[in-house]
Design a protein around this nucleic acid. Sequence first.
DNA 1: TGCAAAATGGAACATATCTTCTATATTCGG
DNA 2: CCGAATATAGAAGATATGTTCCATTTTGCA
Lengths: 277, 277
Amino acid sequence: MDARSAPASIEELLDRILEVSDGLPKRLKQCADYVAANPDRVAVSTVAEMSEAAGVQPSAFMRFCQVLGFSGFSQMQRLFRDSYAQNWPDYATRLEKLRESGAGSPSALLAEFVEAGRLSLENLAKTLDPRTLDAAIKALSEANMVHIVGMRRAFSVASYLAYAFEKMNVPTMLHDSVGKLDSRHAIRAGDAVIAITFAPYSPETVALAEAGARAGARVVAITDALASPLRPVTPLLLTVSEADFGDFRSLSATLSLAVALVVAVGTANRARKNGIS
Amino acid sequence: MDARSAPASIEELLDRILEVSDGLPKRLKQCADYVAANPDRVAVSTVAEMSEAAGVQPSAFMRFCQVLGFSGFSQMQRLFRDSYAQNWPDYATRLEKLRESGAGSPSALLAEFVEAGRLSLENLAKTLDPRTLDAAIKALSEANMVHIVGMRRAFSVASYLAYAFEKMNVPTMLHDSVGKLDSRHAIRAGDAVIAITFAPYSPETVALAEAGARAGARVVAITDALASPLRPVTPLLLTVSEADFGDFRSLSATLSLAVALVVAVGTANRARKNGIS
DNA sequence: TGCAAAATGGAACATATCTTCTATATTCGG
DNA sequence: CCGAATATAGAAGATATGTTCCATTTTGCA
């Protein structure tokens, strides 16, 4: 243990944690990880609370503080309490403050997008039809392979779906247009297609969804209005209306829907496998 | 004095203060004024500190808390502490339960994710430092070219940033790893890098950010904790803590931040061009 | 495998902090 | 101006919290 004095700022403290973290015994490392991940809790918690959250005994947490160069928890906490002043917690107040910082200022913009995201989420919870969701999940979990297509702004949703399905061990193919290779013939009967598109609708996405339907695949659409061009293609239409701000849409609701879809499908698949074996 | 119960939120508390403030005796009014003006200190101070700052005796401050309907200072403080610490429930285990019990209908699942997204957005508004945001936008708008890197779950954010920057006519390069081509040498002095990574941090992303910094580019990090491996790389650290579920995170807050970033940079660039021409 | 060093858990101890109580001061109405 | 009601200050008491110590367990090394 070195005899250096206590860190004088939170940055210094985090540096020190990063630095010693690897050479720390198990319990002390738990403390280090917890503090590094939740530095904001230090200011308003007791050692008992901190240590419980980190999964260690209070005494272990004390030793951790001392390894960092503090005399004890109280001294370390003082550091966090002193720098606490600016982070004033209340959401409504804070949002108001951000907005007031000047129309067009970055913070004001952020406030608008946060608000838009929140509205979208609320709206999603209210309007999505559970039966359609159930049917979509059934179709996806029965598929041999899930094809995902979404271009331009919908591509981030598509790539997230691909990532999440992979994590869930669901066979997946992400149809990007790298090299303009035409991948539509990869879709077979018994597969499923998730097509994501918002106005102005991407023709490639619609075309691929149609090709999938013709090939005998079930198609799940994530789109923004009942008038979407995907409407004629499939009855499994999940509509998400995001509150946009300017030309951009936040995608908050769309992504939440995507995660829910993946987790539900992953769970259904796992249940089915267990049932069969 | 009325016998109503204690306020359940900070807004309620501030309302109540406003309401009773006029009919309060001198010392108690001092307390009311001080709390109304410095609500952020309540969570991290002792009665002794609060009362001294308000210019009264501790006992006077106690009486003030009781007039408000609390049993004492501690109870009032708990209100402030709870609202500060992002005490969102443990979604990982909550979802695990939902899934294992099989009782979790897809819509219930969706509701969970919507709620998680909402909390993440609130938290973003509460914790993001406007000055860091301003500095990040300045760095990005001064860059000749914006490089974007984010792997795995962060890739959807990266791809969305690329899409939006393109829309805004900001020169952009998305560093995917298609073909495992090493693109780090494309980064030059005068460029900027946006690196997005969340625990478990992707080594490629960190490496590319470091390479960028060495090449003389400004680096903006979007990450999840102050202890992120990107912190040593750059002071422009935008931290977004999403409520996450093991391998998944809703990304609602991250994407809102991304849009705000892009629009602000686009606007700044346009203003600059107009100013020059 | 056995030993020594280090780490850990839990309880005992010390201290800081909150809370209450009462004598004194102040205010307000007649 | 006087008396009753209320407010206040300060200190004493109760409680929560931080801190230390030591027996036990675990780890690392020969």
